[in-house]
């Protein structure tokens, strides 16, 4: 376990009012994880990520980073540990008065590295983040995506084993976000760096993470592997987030026609994971049983290296036949839950 947060609470006082930024939060992050923490603004996720490098201290609870209780370390030890934890920010936080080169060089200057060493490393990093031609530019002349690349290069300058991303893509347009996410993936895969990502965008989680924690009002309401959370979200907030990328709401007009359909039928939400072959299973259902399946919604998405398919069908036929068909679905490894028709508005 690289990072362990045990029962963390943190209360702020603002205008004489107590704000529970975090209450009893526990997380375990393994080496090599890309761990996503998602929540709306004010959910406490920024405070939470700052616990990991002790920019924030908990009122209660323990933060272990690589087995060390970070809040009990003497200051020099804490600073040493922080050099092993890179951090990038939504607002980039680059020095406006320094060139790209000098910005990336700063963490090494703090460590009193020789200028030859610094030059070699900065060149290497510029290459890695594909920003060689901007070496002598000032941040004011860079685009948002380029600034974040500088931020990433700076965070990697001390060869950390953990990288914290605080809304790193929230100030960027979708295309730039995509390229920064690709870069972060590369960092995780090629350098083996554990990444913790704070975001309010579920597509970031979908694209990047293997683990996710959903936060609301200072609490973690749901956590687990991304595949599990996406295929079977339990908490309403989690469902909202999942729906923001896999919008499985069926148009109201379709429900009208289903309500008008006088045959016996059921709505089912099917979930296919990897191996199960979507097409053939449904084809077999139609062939083997005296039912009709009508697809209302279908979505296929890639998560980690798995394929998740969500299909909502309207199955009509005799109750007995439907029961048999459902049995067959179970046997074929397709899980399903009933899908409720909302009341007519």
């Amino acid at each position: 376990m690289v990072i362990e947060l045990k029962d963390i609470s943190r209360t702020f006082e603002q205008n004489k009012k107590e704000i529970h930024a975090l209450s009893h939060v526990s997380l375990n992050i393994e080496k090599g994880d890309i761990y996503g923490i998602i929540g709306f603004s004010g959910a406490g996720k920024s405070t939470l990520v700052r616990m990991i490098n002790a920019l924030e201290k908990p009122d209660e609870g323990i933060v272990l980073v690589e087995g060390k209780n970070i809040n009990e370390l003497p200051k020099p030890e804490l600073r040493k540990l922080r050099k092993n934890i890179g951090m990038i920010f939504q607002q980039f936080n680059l020095l406006e008065s320094k060139t790209v080169y000098d910005n990336i060089a700063i963490p090494m200057k703090l460590n009193h590295k020789s200028s030859a060493e610094i030059e070699k490393k900065v060149e290497e990093l510029l290459d890695f983040v594909e920003l060689k031609e901007k070496k002598d530019a000032y941040p004011a002349n860079l685009s948002g995506g380029q600034k974040q690349r500088v931020g990433i290069a700076r965070a990697l300058a001390t060869d950390p084993s953990i990288l914290l991303c605080d809304e790193a893509t929230s100030a960027l347009d979708p295309k730039t976000t995509e390229s920064i996410l690709q870069l972060l993936k590369k960092i995780n895969q090629e350098l083996g760096i554990t990444i913790v990502i704070i975001t309010h965008e579920m597509n970031v989680i979908q694209e990047m993470c293997n683990q996710v924690a959903v936060m609301e009002f200072g609490k973690v309401v749901e956590q687990g592997s991304v595949v599990d959370i996406f295929s079977n979200p339990k908490h309403p907030t989690t469902r909202n987030f999942v729906q923001s990328v896999i919008n499985d709401s069926v148009p109201a007009s379709l429900f009208d026609s289903i309500r008008a359909d006088e045959r016996n039928g059921e709505l089912l939400r099917l979930k296919f994971l990897d191996g199960s072959n979507t097409d053939s299973v449904l084809a077999q259902v139609n062939k083997r049983f005296d039912v009709e399946t009508n697809i209302l919604f279908a979505n296929i998405s890639q998560l980690e290296n798995k394929v998740l398919g969500i299909i909502i069908i309207h199955m009509t036929g005799e109750a007995e036949e439907i029961k048999k068909a459902k049995q067959y679905l179970n046997e074929s490894g397709v899980s399903y839950i009933p899908y409720e028709i909302p009341e007519a508005s």
Binding site: L55, Q91, N93, I106, L110
Partner: peptide
């Protein structure tokens, strides 16, 4: 900016640095 100082702290800089 606060963020600059936060970034500096996250790099393990001493107050003098």
């Amino acid at each position: 900016k606060e963020g600059i100082i936060e970034a500096a702290e996250s790099m393990g800089a001493t107050p003098l640095q």
